[in-house]
Structures are given as C-alpha cells and as structure tokens.
Simulated scan of single mutants.
Amino acid sequence: MLETGQDYRGVNPTQENIEAGLTTLTEKTMGPLSKIGRSGFAGCLGFADRPAAPGLHFMDTPFFSPTSLTGMALGGAQVGLFAMGVFNPSGMPLMPTLKVCGNPATLDRWADSIDVDVAALLTGAEDLDAGADRIHRAVRAVVAGEPTRAEHWTEGQLIAPRVTAAL
C-alpha cells in the first residue's frame, strides 16, 4: 500500500511462501478465497469488529498471522482454523487455534505440530466431505476440551496493531 507509506513487496509472500512455490501476493490471496467453497460473504469487518449477523465474514487484518488471529479472537471467534502450507508456529492464547495442513513436506517435518492433515484431499485419496468431516471432528474435540497442538507446545502470540491517524 504505497498510498499509506507501506510497501509489502518483498515482505509478502514470505520467503517460505516463495520456496513453497508462490510467486506473488495475488497467488497467495487465492488460497483463502478457494477455502470459502461455495459460501457467500455476509459482510466485511474491520480489525476486531464483531459480526452483526451470522455467516461468513471477511475481516480486514494485517497479513502477519499473530496479528490476524488476534483480530479474529477480539472479534469474538471461539475457535480458529489456521490453514498453512509451510510451517508456522502461530497460535492464539485467547482462542484454540487448529492448524490444518495439506503440504506433505510440512506434514513430514512438523507432524507433531499439526492438528489436521488434509494431504489426502490433494492426492484425491479423500473427497472434500471426508476432509470437512475430519476438520469438524477436530473442532468438536477442541470445544470439548482437547488441547490443540499449539496449546500443547505453548505456541502463540497476542499482537494488536497500533493504528495511527492518516496524515
């Protein structure tokens, strides 16, 4: 956002994203868009805003994972689903954060830090309904008190951005 004096080029996608095959921020953005499936958006929220109605909402947060998760927790999220391609130790002390991963290399290297393995979706060995059921079971287990891997390893940060008025 050069208009605000910030330039995210060279920062995002991160070096890890680039090593995993992403080349642009546009490509990185396609990941979250593909994860909403056929759902429509119910609304757009500012950082830490609570939704006024049920449904899928977009929250305008900084790209840094701990800050983004902080905004979601402050906005009332009860459980976070953190989809990752390369390893990221982000968790959220204010809400259980399940790490969902389909990258076989990440799963091999960080299996004890991933909550839900969805690699079978990428190979076609599993359909979307089976993957969704596994994620749903993991969420239900966490809601019933089972700790996430981030909680087990005490990973996570609470980071709120400092907002300044436009000059």
Rank of each mutant, 00 (worst) to 15 (best):
L2A: 10
T4L: 15
G5F: 04
D7K: 05
D7C: 08
Y8S: 05
Y8P: 14
V11G: 01
N12Q: 04
T14A: 09
T14C: 10
T14W: 00
Q15R: 14
N17L: 12
G21L: 10
L22E: 09
T23I: 06
T23C: 02
L25D: 10
L25H: 08
T29G: 15
L33T: 08
R38H: 11
G40Y: 06
A42G: 08
G43Q: 07
C44L: 14
L45S: 01
G46H: 05
A48W: 04
P51V: 06
P51S: 05
P51M: 05
P54G: 12
H57E: 01
F58Y: 09
M59A: 15
D60M: 11
F63H: 09
S65K: 08
T67Y: 01
S68G: 15
S68H: 01
S68L: 11
L69E: 06
G71W: 10
M72T: 01
M72F: 05
A73P: 14
A77V: 14
A77D: 07
Q78C: 06
V79A: 02
L81A: 09
F82S: 04
M84E: 13
N88L: 02
N88T: 07
P89G: 12
P89W: 04
S90N: 10
M92S: 15
P93G: 03
M95L: 12
V100K: 00
N103I: 00
P104N: 06
P104M: 04
A105P: 03
A105H: 02
D108I: 00
R109A: 15
R109I: 02
W110R: 09
A111N: 11
A111P: 00
I114C: 12
D115L: 06
V116N: 12
A120E: 14
L121Q: 03
T123P: 03
T123H: 03
G124C: 04
A125Y: 01
D127M: 05
A130D: 08
G131Q: 04
G131S: 04
A132H: 12
R134C: 03
H136A: 13
H136Q: 09
H136M: 03
R140D: 13
V143T: 08
V143S: 04
E146D: 14
T148G: 06
W153N: 10
Q157C: 08
I159Y: 01
A160E: 12
A160T: 08
R162P: 02
T164P: 02
A166C: 05
